[in-house]
Design a protein around this nucleic acid. Structure first.
Length: 208
DNA sequence: AGCACGATTAACT
DNA sequence: GTTAATCGTGCTC
């Protein structure tokens, strides 16, 4: 018997919005030298829901909606990591969702720390616990997620995998809030304001 | 070949 | 509230 259940490909192979909501409360786990660093996902954003053109999504914004070297992973099968670099210094961790051939993904924006706090504090330069994982680039830094995880299989428990998501009790629907996605800049409407960001209402680790 | 800008953060005033 | 940091990517010339 296993103590933990790794989320299977079927969990991810659904529309981005569905996965974004269902990921709330799940546990993101990073294994480093046998030590578990983990946190419960408390904030997500959905990009490129199936069959809906989403000009906020890298996969639709670039190259007329065709894959590019950067976005290729988003067009691949669900359950893989899409990790990209932005602002010249930050990594963003997403999970690929939906059907292969379509650019669907969910951005992990915040975690509630569970295990491995000592290492997370170190990776976050000694900042207070509240600031370890309350933002997409912060959680990537806290879990040491970088370019090497782009294209990583989050479901293959038998590989050298050191990153996955475990099942955990869901957040109750009445405790889930939603609103417009953050940082979309010049993205046109309706995508700029469409409420595809979801978070655990009242959780102190939700990004500012 | 050159350029504008980003699914952000931290350190300012 | 404002802004520097910092560089890969995709688009234009």
């Amino acid at each position: 018997m296993t103590k933990y259940t790794v989320l299977p490909p079927s969990f991810y192979a659904r529309p981005a919005r569905t996965v974004a909501v269902d990921l709330l409360g799940k546990r993101l786990v990073r294994l480093i030298n046998g030590r578990r660093l983990s946190g419960l996902i408390v904030e997500t954003e959905a990009y490129c829901d199936a069959a809906e053109r989403d000009l906020a999504c890298h996969g639709d914004k670039a190259n007329g909606g065709r894959p590019t070297p950067r976005t290729a992973v988003m067009f691949g099968p669900a359950g893989f990591a899409y990790v990209y670099f932005t602002y010249g210094m930050h990594w963003m961790f997403n999970v690929v969702t939906g059907e292969e051939g379509q650019a669907n993904a969910v951005l992990a924006r915040a975690l509630q720390p569970e295990e491995g706090g000592e290492l997370m504090a170190e990776y976050r330069n000694g900042r207070p616990r509240r600031e370890w994982t309350n933002g997409p680039a912060k959680l990537a830094q806290a879990l040491a997620i970088d370019k090497s995880f782009n294209g990583a299989n989050l479901c293959a428990a038998d590989s050298v995998m050191s990153l996955w998501i475990e099942d955990a009790p869901p957040i109750l629907p009445e405790d889930i809030a939603s609103g417009p996605r953050i940082g979309l800049g010049k993205t046109p409407e309706p995508w700029l304001s469409i409420p595809w960001r979801y978070w655990a209402r009242g959780n102190e680790f939700v990004s500012k």
